[in-house]
Amino acid sequence: MFQSREELEKKLAEYHYLIDRDVATVVYLAVKLQKPLLVEGPAGVGKTELAKALAAVTNSRLIRLQCYEGLDEAKALYEWNYQKQLLCLHLKQNQSKSWHEAKDDIFTREFLLRRPLLDALESTEPVVLLIDEVDKSDEEFESFLLEILSDYQITIPELGTIKAKRVPLTVLTSNNFRDFGDALKRRCVHLYLDYPTFERELEIIRLKVPGIDQLLSQQLVSFVQVLRKQDIKKPPSIAETIDWARSLLTLCVSRIDADIVQSTLSILLKYQSDIDKILPRVSSLLPDD
């Protein structure tokens, strides 16, 4: 898929997804060792975006499975299409057939509803399988993922074992909402995505918000970086920095000062308690020069 890490880095950059060398190494490893990539980190650092970018640069189809509490095999893997089976039986009622024939008829692939996981395994074209927010699923579902992620196969009692036609590039994301089992973690290559460094974030802002003033972008990024170190409930994510940069551009602001920040703080901070905490301290948090 990729010959080297440099190639991966370059291709992702062309797609406007900038990553550090370390991150690129981990992603490259996951691809090379054909192991699932588990991405952890705070909300809004681009975990899901990474999977999307990977799909785009490898010309693969992105199959996304959003996890939530109560997600089960029927919704993630496959389900028999009962209604269709019933219809079929109704039609066949008059042709007296033995049980064996009838059974074979209704438990074939025709009556199988493919859910994302099966879809990813059976696909003949290259796919990127994104299992989003694994930590939100139940424990049972997690153990059930084990077979798929370690052997890339699933067993359907009526049909037998289905092996992957080609190993999908699998990305799992987690917000650490719940601590999930070590068994699943051990099968993956780990990537911890943190908030970007000052330079990296500056680059991202300039890429995503073209036309922004040099100095303004520096000021606003350094303010956001300071803000993240404060003790608040939800530190601003990259997406929020971009939003803020866009708003400042729209407002034709050329330099940030305490007034501007105070009036636009709600773009960066989403909790009222955070805003209340930061608002009186804005001027002391602004960059020195």
Partner: peptide, 18 residues
């Protein structure tokens, strides 16, 4: 750097252990 990342991403399962 690469060797470090290779070991880190495979041996450390939990952020706390880093």
């Amino acid at each position: 750097e690469d060797f470090y990342i290779a070991l880190l991403s495979t041996l450390v399962v939990d952020q706390i252990d880093q």
